[in-house]
Write a protein that binds this DNA or RNA. Sequence first.
DNA 1: AATGAATGAGACTTCATTCAT
DNA 2: AATGAATGAAGTCTCATTCAT
Lengths: 198, 198, 198, 198
Amino acid sequence: MMASVLTGAPRRSAHADSRLPQILDTAAHLFCTQGYQGTTVRDIASAVGILPGSLYCHFSTKDDLLAAVYVRGVDQICAAVEAAIARTAEPWPRLEAACVAHLEAILRDDDYARVVVRVRPTDVPSVAQRLIKDRNRYEAQWLALIKALPLPAGTDRKAFRLMLLGALNWAPNWYRADGAASPRTLARHFIAMFKPHG
Amino acid sequence: MMASVLTGAPRRSAHADSRLPQILDTAAHLFCTQGYQGTTVRDIASAVGILPGSLYCHFSTKDDLLAAVYVRGVDQICAAVEAAIARTAEPWPRLEAACVAHLEAILRDDDYARVVVRVRPTDVPSVAQRLIKDRNRYEAQWLALIKALPLPAGTDRKAFRLMLLGALNWAPNWYRADGAASPRTLARHFIAMFKPHG
Amino acid sequence: MMASVLTGAPRRSAHADSRLPQILDTAAHLFCTQGYQGTTVRDIASAVGILPGSLYCHFSTKDDLLAAVYVRGVDQICAAVEAAIARTAEPWPRLEAACVAHLEAILRDDDYARVVVRVRPTDVPSVAQRLIKDRNRYEAQWLALIKALPLPAGTDRKAFRLMLLGALNWAPNWYRADGAASPRTLARHFIAMFKPHG
Amino acid sequence: MMASVLTGAPRRSAHADSRLPQILDTAAHLFCTQGYQGTTVRDIASAVGILPGSLYCHFSTKDDLLAAVYVRGVDQICAAVEAAIARTAEPWPRLEAACVAHLEAILRDDDYARVVVRVRPTDVPSVAQRLIKDRNRYEAQWLALIKALPLPAGTDRKAFRLMLLGALNWAPNWYRADGAASPRTLARHFIAMFKPHG
DNA sequence: AATGAATGAGACTTCATTCAT
DNA sequence: AATGAATGAAGTCTCATTCAT
């Protein structure tokens, strides 16, 4: 893109400016916006500015493209959470930091992460197993975070996790970017609700 | 069906044995199982045992059929919650009863209700407004239930609602019918987590 | 077509004038002329005067259409041979009659039969087994015809059959309709060559 | 190959290890196995281990590649027959030797020759004339062979040729490599059938 | 109320081929 | 001689929908 500005012409087919990154970004954006089945190969191609068939230089099927977007979504949200909790040692603040990172990813920052909470693996049978495996990779992080919490004896930590993640993952269904509450504020509220009160 | 019971014979009365109920049931089942876009008009027709074109005797478009299923889903889950809280006066037990009813509907009993938590209104633009209006009708119930709770001053009741409903609505994503926890147990766990502890 | 001449308008979608027979005829013609893989669904549809998708009202795949053409080809050539030998009792004249019928079918009369000697079952894996079974049905006729021949002891009747049928089936590769020799003449020549002389 | 033998090392000489021979061999193999239209440029390229585009360093079109395979097929089967009849003077034994060579080529040895009896020139219009010319070159050999036969007066030698070659060329349709009869045995049987007895 | 055949648009995908590198 | 990315046309097939019967 810069190149074309500099040279004054949209160079075509240099090895350097492969469209692959653009394809992934566009696919991620459309998948999380319109859903997987609601997005056509044509949609993606025309948003990138190539022909539909050209997508198949990079991915052998549309399902495969989804899988590629999905792994990256999991990678990125894992990394975001990891980074967010890195500097904090206390269990509850760590959990809150993770929630902030998670919400920021799926509400604002990261189309790839959004895809992870938007697309149901079982709706895409040919890659369902891969997607589920990826998703589980992410959930493992939360297992650890919640295990570390000083919860009253007898608390069902599995229910705790399912509930918290459910509440977070559902947020894209009602969240409006222009709303009052930032992801950070939301996370604080959510955690406050869960924290055993003195 | 009732008709045949009354008349004592499976007579082919033009009105009595209309396929409409069957069509709705089937559509509800498929929509909540495979999603709206993942379900074709043919899927529904062939499950009912009629031809695709015959569906258009009852609905003018597939989107319309969805809207019909969706209203009924909201009606039914409203009624279920209403019934569940009818005999209880205390705020927290009422909330728990509502949660039980909600979870039982979307996890076990009611394909129509499942559709409501499965299909995103905005994915079906032509009827999106109707669906949203229906869904809001349901959420109003929860507003009232939560308003009645004796929560610590300063609690953000909107966040409370969004969080609780999010946690509930996300449950179909991980719930397995054969699992250990019944909807009732789950609801109890969830409420326990939210209830300010003494 | 006649109808449209009479009524003055190309009636569309009456139940009576289904395009199915026309589709089969056209497919047979194109398959035997251009080969199976050399014929596109579009070719067939546009020759019939319908849209490509409309073919799928009658056949669920292109391969299925081929199978339908193929069975009919076998049926027809079986019937033609059957009819040709019905009035003859002597073994050699029966064989000659069969050859005449066979050659007339695959050289002049019958696009369906031509498909049978043009398309290799193994080239269309999804229906290969069905095609082979059909083809074998036809070869059984020849087994009987050749068994009845008074050949010198020690003649390999299997080789005889394979050779004769091979010679016949290869004929479309060199036969020109405008040529001198009619199928009937050819058959006579061929049989003469095989008949033990003297 | 020779090059590496001579130099004693699999040196990457620009000319020596050209992929051209491999491309031809692979194309011949796939064309005779799957047919011309059933073989894609990608099939060939990936079997050779290069990219589809790289084929166009050697051939300007897929049709051209076919033509190259086809000429070589004709060359090789001509040579095989030539060699087979070289040491024999008697007409019938010469014919039988030719049949053996022909059958061995198209049933066992020679993918190139197989292509010649598999692909219909008219299916590939752009090179049809070249293919036909090549094929005729081969048939000329048989004209001579059959002309030399001491056949009963009045025998139609053209029919004789068409019939014999047809029977031979059709053999790939039923021959199984693991079967009992070798090409040599088959040829003997076939000739026996044609030879005037007594 | 339902059928059977068709429509027209568009789905995903594959093809032979090109061309700067 | 070969690559990698892209083209443009065409491939088979599916979709929601229509309409005379």
